[in-house]
Design a protein around this nucleic acid. Sequence first.
DNA 1: CGGAGTACTTGCACAGGATGCAAAATTGCA
DNA 2: TGCAATTTTGCATCCTGTGCAAGTACTCCG
Lengths: 220, 220
Amino acid sequence: MNTSIAPADAAPLTEAADVVAPGRREQNKLDTRRAIAASALDLARAHGLGNFTVDQVAAEAGVSRRTFFNYFHSAEEALTTSTDALLELAAAEFMARPADEPLLDAMLAALAAIAKTDNLSVCGELFRMAEGSAELMRSQLHAWERAEARIGQAVNERMGGNLDPLYLLALVGAVLSCVKAAMQVWAAAAENPQDGSAADLEDQIVGALSMLRDGFNHPR
Amino acid sequence: MNTSIAPADAAPLTEAADVVAPGRREQNKLDTRRAIAASALDLARAHGLGNFTVDQVAAEAGVSRRTFFNYFHSAEEALTTSTDALLELAAAEFMARPADEPLLDAMLAALAAIAKTDNLSVCGELFRMAEGSAELMRSQLHAWERAEARIGQAVNERMGGNLDPLYLLALVGAVLSCVKAAMQVWAAAAENPQDGSAADLEDQIVGALSMLRDGFNHPR
DNA sequence: CGGAGTACTTGCACAGGATGCAAAATTGCA
DNA sequence: TGCAATTTTGCATCCTGTGCAAGTACTCCG
């Protein structure tokens, strides 16, 4: 598996237990990955977003510059692992919903579960950081885009592959936009101390998705 | 105006006629900008997306490498001018809608007008190209993000600034997601010869927005 | 017309990003 | 323990992106 040396494009931080052999090697790679991501976050906090180099990240993580690039394509990508995990969780939750549940109910339940993510506050922090950095913003947007594709595929399979492509794409895109809006509002409010609880985020998500199900027909 | 030397972040390709003085300078800048964008597109078509350098683009456009970077931050950004123009048009159309028109009607009318864009086919082409290139995808997503911000601001002003931020962000995001979905379906269908007319795109946009106004309550 | 002022272009220098390659180090397992 | 598979690393190399200062083109106005 993964014979290439290039950065794994969808390396799951939440490991999917590939049947057997969790293996020491897999574990070590995960540790390295996490160490690099953590160092990147440290430096971003300490020096600001554009103000540190890959060499510094590698040094702080205790690996060589070259190894950094074996794991990530860029510093911003290393910062996006948290967001990726959050969206991965949403996809997993969705797939775990009972098959007979109405589609929109399942999506709502799955996405509200986002609030249960570990290091939620880090995600909020990154959300705010991205406002000031075009590169990080792009990386984050790309993460959402990938999630959209994954979830879209899951929805399609759930519905037997008979959905109108336009319906499918528009639905998933709109739903994720609502979640993004919810996170944006929540992250902005959570700027202060340790405000911004998981419950608050869940409220925002539910709120936004309610508006969606209502067709946005009641401006407020 | 524009005393900085850095690439203009929102240089309008559709010139807004700044009172007087279209001037030779402004004209030259526009020409250069267009020449660079055109060269980038040529090379992307000829060699594939990651397979050409900024130097080549600059050479083909007849400017120095340094000048290229005075106009764009990257090769991908040069490819995004068409998409930007398209979204700029949507924003302009929206702002031109009568103030007493219901909000959702105004958005629908404005966004359906996207199909009137010049070089629509180029936008479709880029949409398809982006599927295969992470960098271009990021650039395009960023363009949509910027459009979202602009349109969001316009909507907010139109409604007297009293909108719930969550409603505002969710609405605009969802609407643009629908338009994106419409373009995606349209672009995929337009892969063939000169299929994919403006009318087709408009149909997809209207279709997607109808689903949205319906709250996606009728899967199909 | 012509010259002063402004704006754009260019070459140069330089730090840093990104990747192929092959040697060296590490790890897993029989 | 010893070997095969996998990772890490250093090195070389090309490309990106930007500051700077000098050169060139345009604009305005007397």
